[in-house]
Simulated scan of single mutants.
Amino acid sequence: MRIILALLSGVLFGAGLAISGMADPMRVRAFLDLFGAWDPTLAFVIGGAMIPMSLAWMVQRRIERPFVDKAFTLPNTHGVDGKLALGAILFGIGWGIGGLCPGPAIASLSLAPAAVAPFVLAMLGGMALHRFTIRS
């Protein structure tokens, strides 16, 4: 049951990225181009995503455990430090240059694999480099 729910969640997430335009690098770049030909449509997508997420947090607070697990595994919150700031800066630079971030990049593999594969390979390389060089 757990694997089926994970698969359905992934398919729903990927479909949402594709339908919303978040998997389209040109639309993302136009959204990030605040002083040029700015396209505000992704602001509505991001804002709209806050509604179901808010509902999910309200439900999570009211139930003892998830439906398919023994307990919730939520990350602890910490203050902003140098590693978080550097990671956010690198993420923003990569998002601006590539027009993709990890979720939409994976979803885009089904839409335009040849165009997105270099980004995904570079992303996986960066993840591997982080895993083997940075101590948490």
Rank of each mutant, 00 (worst) to 15 (best):
T73N: 09
F31M: 14
P104Q: 12
A30V: 03
V120L: 08
G82I: 00
P75W: 03
I3L: 11
A56N: 06
F44E: 00
G87V: 08
A23L: 05
P52L: 07
L12Q: 03
V45S: 04
F13N: 10
L55Q: 01
P113H: 09
L8K: 06
A30M: 01
L32G: 02
F132S: 10
D24Q: 14
L42I: 07
L111Y: 09
S9G: 15
Q60Y: 06
F91K: 02
M22K: 11
M127A: 04
D39H: 04
G98C: 14
L109F: 07
G21E: 14
I46V: 15
L100P: 10
I89E: 02
G82N: 02
L100Y: 13
D39W: 00
W57K: 07
A115R: 03
P75F: 01
G98D: 13
P52G: 08
G47W: 10
L7P: 00
R62S: 09
F31K: 10
V116Y: 07
A30T: 11
V59S: 02
W38E: 06
G103T: 03
A49D: 03
P75K: 08
A122D: 02
E64T: 02
T41K: 14
P40T: 12
G99N: 08
G79I: 01
L8D: 04
L34C: 01
L5F: 13
E64H: 04
G79E: 11
L86K: 07
A6T: 04
G21C: 11
L129Y: 07
T41G: 10
L5H: 08
V80E: 03
H78K: 10
K83G: 00
T73G: 04
A30P: 05
V116M: 09
V59I: 15
G16R: 06
R27I: 15
P113T: 07
I46T: 08
I63Q: 12
G16K: 01
F132V: 13
M58L: 14
D24S: 14
G16Q: 04
A23S: 15
L12G: 09
A128Y: 00
L109Q: 06
S110C: 07
V45E: 04
A37P: 05
E64C: 05
F72M: 06
R62D: 04
A15V: 15
R2N: 12
S110H: 01
L5T: 11
A114H: 09
A15Y: 11
G103D: 01
Q60L: 15
A115F: 00
L74Y: 03
V80S: 04
F44Q: 07
R135K: 14
A107K: 08
I4C: 09
I51W: 06
A114R: 13
I46N: 05
E64I: 00
M50G: 13
G36S: 11
S20Y: 13
R62V: 10
L86N: 06
A112W: 09
H78C: 06
A114S: 08
A85T: 06
M26Y: 05
R62M: 08
L12H: 09
S136Q: 01
L124V: 14
G92F: 11
P113C: 02
G82Y: 02
V68T: 13
